[in-house]
Design a protein around this nucleic acid. Structure first.
Lengths: 352, 352
DNA sequence: TTGAAAGCGCTAACAG
DNA sequence: CTGTTAGCGCTTTCAA
């Protein structure tokens, strides 16, 4: 087959086989058994299809049947371990159902999210998984108007089923682990344990709540200025650390960092200051990263169970009419110096 | 507009406006100026479209015009900083051209790659960027048969333009930086500098070549067993380190790690052994990760210029008939304790 | 067991 | 300046 030659259509095969286009169509989309087409004609046509490298035009099929075979995943960003591992798991799962995964990111920008979802709808995607949307409910509205099944992940909406991490419990685990880490050394005082990062979204609010409750229970107090919400921005987080350092002449001994993105802000701060500045700190990070786990100070981390969340989400998607309620998935506390496996391990072991 | 109501079509607007469907179509797809349609009719129709929340059915448009507006990026994996940052940059660039980015991964599996690309072709994607394909040339064949413009990234093909990192130069920079890092301390001997990771792909071969050449130039020798190709597998890499350690009772003082994926294998090894095992090692990693940069031993890294590579790739894609040659992009040596910015920085600074 | 015919929603000549 | 017409490639009744 030389370059640019037009792709074979069912009509080409119809002529070649002497059957009608509808017969060819039925054979090639798998519905031929129930259309009671003779085994021999089916085989004839399948042979021709193979020989002529026929592949269905999925746009045409989608247009006609108003189902595209596309399944979408909306992410805040690609460039992040948590979300990219979600993408990885999502792809495998969707492929295993014989559909085509579409992963897109929208930068935590409500307007971008709307536009992106509208585009996906225009391509007639069949289902949408909405991860980390800033405004799940307005996306819900879009999807519902278009009759598209959808599930929220990571950030809850009120109008569609939502599968999210138990951020409150996770924050409690992390906070108490930080505090306990000091038990052998000089015990931590309330003014020595700070939270950096996050903003006014559901996840951050829950984590802050868990942090405060646990801190008050274990240390007896928590001052408002121990919470430094900096958004999901490395830069802002760095600035917050610089400001703190300038004011206090040192860092707090106990640090609760809201996400790996904020942790990068701490790294930027570290790049500007000598080792000694971090000699006795203990960091808890609400996100897991294997490299962070081996930094030269203790780093406790929360690993969110992305696979569990997606599994639950797919399960709900398969239900006829899932309730618009919130399903909590437990995250996991990871002690320092742990290099864990990810969704790619099975694949990559083929190598070598 | 209540749930499930059918989406408005150009025919609906045609009736409402009193114009023909083709006029409506022209107005709504932007070609109305050159069809010399009256400003006032255009406005009328645009108003109606807005009011009725019209959005074009992109499958229908694509079917008719045989261009879908979809632009694909084929990746080995999502779950990796290097590739996910490529995805991030790619998305922004494609969106800025008013097209729809489709990012897919194929796990470095030639069969999966073929199947994935065939699916994309079935959806009539307009252009394909092929990053890290194990067999770019066979994908080239598919694309060419379908008349789809395509560019290789990261791993070169022989039949389409290829934009890749200068792996040889990068490896030379990294190797000599590792060696020089010992100048003040006891100088490194040839048997103390090993390369771990990679396999028989173009990038690994080039890096190994750069490593050997530089090592021989600077240290006078390089034994074959100083190269330990383990594939792109954390597990295999860990095993290679365990085997080495069992044999030698320690790690080499100088380590060239082929990629962050292999570095994770070293982390897994580290998790099983005490701090002291790594007291005097220097690691060079052919990939940049901010957390790795602050580990408790010196880590030199190569940051590949994904933005530069993509920029060049888009430039080539825009050319009428780009030559099927290889374009090398220089990577950058990153010294220890550096937390650099990524493609998301501009976005995220909105936060806070 | 198969074929004919209609049409999914849109675009693109061509004709006026 | 605008309407008519003919499909893009496929699915899906309905009839034979």
């Amino acid at each position: 087959m030389r370059q640019g030659k037009k792709k074979a259509t069912i009509y080409d095969l119809s002529v070649l086989s002497g059957c009608s286009a509808s017969t060819v169509s039925a054979v090639l989309n798998g519905s031929w058994r129930k259309r009671r087409i003779k085994e021999s004609t089916a085989q004839l046509i399948q042979g021709l299809a193979e020989r002529h490298q026929y592949t269905a035009n999925l746009q045409a099929r989608g247009l006609r049947s108003s189902r595209s075979g596309l399944v979408g995943l909306l992410l805040p960003v690609h460039d992040n371990r948590y979300f990219s591992s979600m993408a990885q798991t999502f792809e495998a799962e969707v492929r295993s159902h014989g559909k085509c995964p579409i992963v897109v990111s929208a930068c935590r920008d409500p307007e971008e999210e709307r536009a992106t979802v509208e585009t996906l709808i225009s391509y007639s995607i069949d289902e949408l998984f909405i991860a980390g949307a800033t405004d799940p409910d307005s996306i819900h509205t879009l999807c519902e108007a278009a009759g598209i099944r959808h599930i929220n992940i990571d950030l809850p909406g009120t109008r569609a089923p939502s599968v999210i991490s138990d951020n409150y419990e996770g924050a409690r685990m992390l906070t108490s682990a930080i505090i306990e880490h000091f038990h052998s050394a000089e015990a931590l005082k309330p003014k020595e344990l700070f939270l950096f990062g996050g903003r006014n979204d559901h996840a951050s609010r829950e984590r802050i709540r868990g942090f405060r409750d646990t801190k008050i229970e274990m240390l007896g107090a928590d001052a408002d200025d121990c919470i430094q919400p900096t958004g999901y921005s490395p830069n802002m987080t760095q600035k917050a650390f610089e400001a703190f350092y300038e004011r206090e002449g040192k860092l707090p001994r106990g640090l609760f960092i809201n996400s790996s993105i904020n942790f990068e802000g701490l790294l930027r701060f570290m790049g500007q200051h000598p080792h000694e500045t971090f000699a006795d700190i203990v960091v808890g990070c609400y996100d897991y990263d294997p490299f962070a786990s081996f930094l030269p100070f203790p780093v406790l981390m929360i690993r969110q169970n992305t696979e569990g969340m997606l599994a639950k989400a797919f399960e709900l998607m398969a239900e006829t009419r899932p309730a618009p309620q919130i399903y909590l998935i437990q995250p996991e506390l990871i002690m320092p110096r742990m290099a864990l496996t990810g969704p790619l391990d099975d694949i990559k072991d083929i190598d070598g």
